[in-house]
Structure formats: C-alpha cells, structure tokens
Amino acid sequence: MSFAKLTGGVGIGLRHPHFAEILETKPELAFLEIHSENYFNPHGQSRYYLDQLMLQYPISCHGIGLSLGSSDPLSASHLMQLKDLVDHCQPVLISEHLSWGSINGQFFNDLLPLPYTQELLNHFSARVEQVQDILGRQILIENPSAYLQFSTVEMPEWALLNALVERTGCGLLLDLNNIYVSAMNLGFSSSEYLAEINANAVQEVHLAGFTRKVLPEGEILIDTHGSRVSDPVWHLYQSYLKANPTVATLIEWDSDIPPLSVLLEEQQKALVYG
C-alpha cells in the first residue's frame, strides 16, 4: 500500500495564530502539516481555514490521539473522524506516533513510551494494519523522544521501526530532534540510528527545538517543540540530507508559538541546508 511522496521541499506546521497571515501573504511552502484532531469538526473555524489553505498548499495530517500502542481497542469514532478528514482534504502524508496515550478508555495528554519487544511489535503491527485498512492509505510512524528505557528491551528502536515497515508496508516519519534528545538522554549514538534506519521508508523529516533541564541527578533534554532548531540537530539534518536529498522536511513548533516570520526563517534555513 503506497501513495505519492512529496519530493523534497520544506513545510511548516499550521498553527491557529498563523491562519489569516498565511492566507494573506501566501509564503512559498512545500506543504502545511496539521494536527488531525484539531480539524475533525467540519463546522469549526479551523476547518474553515483549512478549506481555503488546502486550495493553495498540499496538506499533511499528523495525528496525536490514536494511541496505537495502547492495549485498549482503537477508538472507532476517532478512526471515522480521521477517515472523514482524510477523504475531505486528501493529504499527501498521514502520520502517527510510536507511543500510547490511553488505558481503560481514559486518554492522557502525553505520548507515552513503549517496551521494544517482539510482543509489542506484533501488537503495534496489527494496529497499523487496521488503521491503513480503514483509511485505505499508507500511514507513517514517527519515532518518539525518550527519557527512560524499559528494563526489558529486545531490540533497539530503529530495528523495531524497520520490522514494522516490513510487516505492514507503513512508512516512517523521522524526527531528528527526537533522535538527538533520546540519544543524549539514553546514551546511544544518533549517527548509528541514522545509519541503521530504513532510509527508503522515510518520507518525512521533522525538525524542532528542545529544552535543556538540569536536575540533581544530571541534565536531561525535553522535547518541547517550543524553540528554534538546535545546532546539533541542524548538523544531523545536513548529514542525513547528503544521503537522502529528496525527503520532505517539516519545521515543527508546538508550544510558545512565535510569529510566522520565525517559522519562515527556520524554513529558509532548512532550504539552505538542502
């Protein structure tokens, strides 16, 4: 199962404060990425603006609420609303996370970590296949940021993602900021991760900022997506693009939303690296 890729180019995440300005100024962007759940209401203000913007830009749907790694059944209502949105805006990409966020019908405002085991791979693969069958589309799975590691780990994250691609035909969304944050927090090599991940499956790259926090036990990096992309992540990006020049790139900014001009500065910087 597949669909047309974006061929290179840099887009930005579409955020509410920028709706009107993007419509008015029409900046040159390869695509706009939306958080799917914010556009489920067909009569809401967000959907009103989306209907206008999708006439000018390709749209990517980035979900944060399916809770693919949960043991709860997938929400039928959530899936139907997502399908309605996908059918409506015909996005070039659809993505979700390697995480979970619900238990016993209760949802959390977090993307929580998973144990990288064969059991998890079996479970997650079945869920991805279920979603792809309902949508009639391939989805991308994004690597999470990590602050701890389960005591029982049967495979590294990249191996699990590669196996997931082989089993389900899904694609990958590679968040380079998340890789850097996880590598610094858990002590593995970002370069090894990028060397081992299935580059042919990667259709999109995310770039974002992190926050550095000093605790009594030591320093930790927090994936806040609330600042400019850090120099180490730019270096990872530059290295990755040398081998994968046609991957689509997104500037992601989710908290402390700045003026649109700041996102466009980051977008232009990514174009220079490309």
Rank of each mutant, 00 (worst) to 15 (best):
V181D: 02
R167Y: 12
S191Q: 14
S191M: 15
N185E: 05
L174R: 06
G187M: 06
S191K: 15
L194E: 08
N178Q: 06
L194Y: 02
L172P: 07
R167F: 12
G187Y: 08
T168V: 09
A183W: 06
A195V: 09
D175C: 08
Y193S: 03
N198T: 14
N177I: 08
L186Y: 01
F188Q: 03
L194P: 11
I197A: 03
I197Q: 07
L174G: 05
I197V: 12
S190C: 13
L194C: 12
I197T: 02
G171R: 03
F188Y: 08
R167V: 11
N185S: 09
D175P: 07
G187L: 02
N198C: 13
G169T: 13
G169N: 04
M184K: 15
D175E: 07
L186M: 04
S190K: 05
S182W: 00
N198Y: 05
E166T: 12
Y180N: 04
S191V: 15
N185C: 11
F188L: 13
M184E: 14
A199D: 12
L172T: 11
L176R: 13
G169C: 11
L172N: 04
L176V: 07
L186G: 01
N185A: 02
N178F: 06
N198P: 10
V181S: 02
Y193T: 14
A199M: 09
S190Y: 04
S191T: 15
N178E: 06
L174T: 11
L174I: 14
Y193K: 09
L173D: 05
N177V: 01
S182Y: 00
L176C: 07
V181G: 00
Y180G: 00
E166V: 14
A199Q: 14
M184R: 15
A195G: 11
L186C: 00
G171A: 11
Y193A: 01
N177D: 04
A195L: 10
T168H: 03
C170S: 11
Y180D: 02
N185K: 09
A183C: 06
I179L: 06
L186F: 00
G171V: 08
V181A: 05
A199C: 14
